[in-house]
Design a protein around this nucleic acid. Structure first.
Lengths: 206, 206
DNA sequence: ACTTTTGTTAACCATTTGGTTAAACCATGA
DNA sequence: TCATGGTTTAACCAAATGGTTAACAAAAGT
């Protein structure tokens, strides 16, 4: 019975992920999730006592998956510039795979900062470096030029994430101008982000 | 009676703006809006037949206010570089005034592209230039270097808007690192955006 | 004054929705 | 085989919520 148990639970989680990603905590209906999973609504409450617990599971899963993927930052065998370049690639790659992730996180964080804070604290405890601490260190040792790490982090995350967050807007704008979004555009976007990173982190002459 | 009428209506609209901005179309409760406006729930339906119509009003208002403010792009007496710099300033200024606007638009656009498309078409009809057409023109005349206008637009909007969209995330990150967000940081952010624009639109040697 | 129109409210209604219950199902071990 | 305990379901419930109604209040028109 363990097998079937495990299976149903993961089916529910994956279904919940789909629905929650799309509709958010309040937009999602338990019935939708049950339908998606092909089960009865009451079974959801059997496995996860209530909506919030189910959501917590999905939310926490998303967060830890993200931090896991982004942990390239901790690999001390790679120069900082390289690490940040890879970081941006993985970030974009992650969002290509889960395009709704950013907007999902933002939506839910903005309506429940407390939960987010707790979850992040829990996950980050194991991690040696954040992008911020890495940059501070790099500035100290002179490996990268002096700059405000917070501003750089915000700029970088903006360049990577916003195209996905605001995809509906950009699609509308492009559509309006008869422009097609293509793999080539996608590559160009990544290239422009790399260009930005190099511009900021390389020591270029005034 | 015209006076009182006008007054109540605008009170309702402003209240609805507040609530909708905060909770979104589905998160907002008619009762909340009524409370905020200090009136009976039925009165909402008297002025705006139903939730969607009320929302449309708020949504349309937000959009047209935005486009109005951003129309600096059409002032042909100013060099393109200057126009884009001002554009970014106004964009950030607008979002400082209405921090929830971006996330609000994204949320609602992503769940109702059609409405957005219609509204934008209506507003844009009067406008001569978009940022895109301006850039294309500048590239043709050689006023600015050759670059992909769409990528530039996405980069620029990302740098300006995402800090507001993802404010909860960045706050959490900063809080986590004991960093305070200040006016100085705000200025630095704007400066880094200008730096980006100059980097892209000035003819710099290889 | 009084009638009509506009503005406002309390009470109510139908539907949706998260959650519960009691019974049925089914694999397993005694 | 049948008792046991985890799994699943249909039916149900209470609260929330968008929307309606009918009656009342207040101006405006006559």
């Amino acid at each position: 019975m363990k097998l079937k148990d495990q299976n149903t639970e993961s089916i529910i989680l994956e279904s919940a992920r789909l629905i929650f990603m799309d509709k958010g905590l309040y937009g999602a209906r338990m019935q939708d999730i049950a339908n998606q999973a092909g089960i009865n609504k009451a079974l959801l409450h059997y496995y996860f006592r209530n909506k919030e617990r189910l959501f917590d599971e999905v939310f926490g899963g998303a967060l830890s998956k993200y931090f896991q993927k982004m942990d390239i930052i901790s690999d001390e065998s790679i120069p900082i510039l390289e690490r940040v370049l890879t970081y941006s690639e993985r970030f974009v790659g992650f969002l290509s795979e889960y395009p709704q992730m950013s907007i999902f996180l933002i939506k839910e964080i903005s309506s429940n900062q407390a939960l987010f804070h707790i979850k992040v604290q829990g996950i980050k405890k194991n991690k040696k470096y954040s992008l911020l601490s890495l940059m501070s260190q790099g500035i100290e040792t002179g490996e990268i030029p002096t700059l405000d790490p917070v501003i750089f982090l915000i700029n970088l995350h903006s360049l990577c994430a916003y195209p996905f967050v605001a995809a509906p807007i950009f699609n509308a704008i492009c559509q309006n101008s008869g422009i097609q979004w293509s793999d080539e555009k996608h590559q160009k976007l990544l290239y422009s982000i790399h260009e930005f990173i190099r511009f900021k982190l390389s020591k270029h002459p005034l």
